[in-house]
Simulated assay, not measured.
Amino acid sequence: MKTVLVTGGSGFIGRGLVKDLLARGDRVTVLTRDVGRTQAALPGARVVSWSSDRPGPWFEEVDGVDGVIHLAGESIVKRWSEDARREIVRSRIDTTRLMGEAIGKAKRKPGAFLCASAVGYYGPQPGERVLDEDAPPGEGFLADVVVHWEEAARAVEEQHGVRSVQLRIGVVIGEGGGALDKMIAPFRLFLGGPIGDGKQVTSWIHRDDVVGLTLLALDNEAVRGPLNVTAPHAATGEELARAIGAVLRRPSWLRVPEAMVKLGMGDAAEIITTGQRVYPRRAEALGYQFRHARLAPALESIFSR
Rank of each mutant, 00 (worst) to 15 (best):
V165K: 01
E133A: 09
V210N: 12
I195D: 01
M183W: 09
S203F: 08
F141S: 01
E158N: 13
L180N: 11
S164N: 01
R188S: 08
S164I: 08
L114V: 11
I195Y: 00
R207Y: 08
P124F: 03
Q125F: 02
L142W: 06
D209Q: 10
A153Q: 03
L131C: 05
A116K: 09
E158S: 15
D144Q: 12
R207G: 11
V146M: 07
G127C: 11
P136I: 05
I195C: 06
R163H: 03
G193M: 05
F141C: 02
V211C: 09
Y122V: 14
V172G: 06
Q200S: 12
G192I: 07
H160E: 14
L180M: 11
E150A: 06
E128K: 07
P126G: 09
G170H: 02
E150I: 07
G178T: 15
I184N: 02
G193E: 11
P124E: 09
V165R: 01
V147G: 00
R168K: 13
V145T: 14
E133V: 10
G140A: 04
I195H: 01
A118W: 08
C115T: 15
V146L: 09
K182D: 00
E158Y: 01
E157G: 10
P194N: 09
E139G: 02
F190Y: 14
E151K: 15
P137G: 06
G138P: 11
E128Y: 05
R154S: 13
G170Q: 04
A185E: 15
G120P: 12
V145P: 07
D208R: 08
L191S: 12
D208K: 02
L114E: 11
D181Q: 13
Q200G: 13
V211K: 05
G138A: 06
W149G: 07
I184S: 03
S117G: 11
R154L: 13
A185K: 15
V146D: 10
E151D: 14
A143R: 07
Y121A: 04
A153L: 04
Y122W: 12
A179E: 05
K199C: 02
V147Q: 07
D144C: 00
F141K: 03
E157W: 12
L189Q: 14
P126L: 06
L167D: 04
V172S: 07
G120K: 09
